Simulated scan of single mutants.
Amino acid sequence: MQKRFFQSLALGCTLAAAPWMVQAQTMQSGADAMPAMKVQGAARYACGGIGSDESNAMRAAMKDHPLALLFARASGEYLANVDVTIKAAGGDTALAMRASGPVCLVDLPAGRYTVEASTEGMTKSHTVTVGRGSQTADFRF
């Protein structure tokens, strides 16, 4: 009888602690909240920023990448599913992708590039020079 009582007590304590255990297991550190880097030719990139953990992690990592791209409406609402093409000075495409979130971190070889972003029938472009520290190209549609 006493053994069964202690087993029930232990089970009750475990079940009571379960929500805390689940929360601890699902909390992510900044590095875990980052989407994986993808590779296309000489370019590496990661896009995301959906949800506060991922957004905070990506914004914190902007300084560690030569180029960061931000996408938003003129009203300030973030945008995803933006088509992006980055062309080198000679016109060769260095990167072509669809941004799955409002923040993209891009690693490219040093040089001058034209970044073109298109969404909802609108296209914007910025010229950037990579290799002089990190910089941000902010696209407002």
Rank of each mutant, 00 (worst) to 15 (best):
M1L: 12
S8L: 11
L9I: 13
L11G: 07
G12V: 09
C13S: 13
T14F: 15
A16N: 02
A17G: 03
A18N: 02
A18S: 09
W20M: 09
W20T: 00
V22Y: 11
Q23M: 11
A24P: 05
A24S: 13
T26Y: 05
T26A: 02
Q28A: 12
S29N: 07
A31K: 04
D32C: 01
M37N: 08
M37I: 05
M37F: 10
M37R: 12
K38G: 00
K38N: 12
V39I: 12
Q40D: 14
A42P: 08
A42R: 13
A43Y: 12
R44K: 14
R44T: 14
Y45E: 03
C47F: 07
G48V: 06
G48C: 11
G49N: 07
G49P: 08
G51S: 13
G51A: 13
S52W: 01
S52T: 05
D53K: 13
E54N: 08
N56A: 15
A57I: 02
M58H: 09
M58R: 11
M58N: 10
M58V: 09
R59G: 06
R59N: 14
A61G: 12
A61Q: 11
M62T: 14
H65F: 15
P66L: 07
L67T: 14
L67Q: 13
L69G: 05
L70G: 10
F71T: 10
A72M: 11
Y78T: 14
L79S: 02
N81Y: 13
V82I: 05
V84T: 07
T85R: 15
I86Y: 01
I86W: 03
K87D: 06
A88M: 09
A89P: 06
G90K: 11
G90S: 13
D92L: 06
A94I: 05
A94C: 03
A96Q: 15
M97L: 15
R98I: 12
S100W: 03
S100L: 12
C104W: 07
C104P: 04
L108R: 06
P109F: 03
P109V: 04
A110C: 02
R112F: 01
T114R: 07
V115A: 03
V115K: 01
A117Q: 05
A117V: 03
S118I: 01
M122Q: 10
T123Q: 05
K124M: 04
S125V: 02
H126C: 00
H126I: 02
T127G: 01
V128G: 04
V128C: 03
V130C: 02
R132D: 08
G133V: 01
Q135G: 12
Q135D: 03
Q135F: 00
Q135S: 09
T136I: 12
T136F: 02
T136D: 05
A137R: 07
A137V: 06
F139P: 09
R140N: 08
F141V: 06
F141T: 04
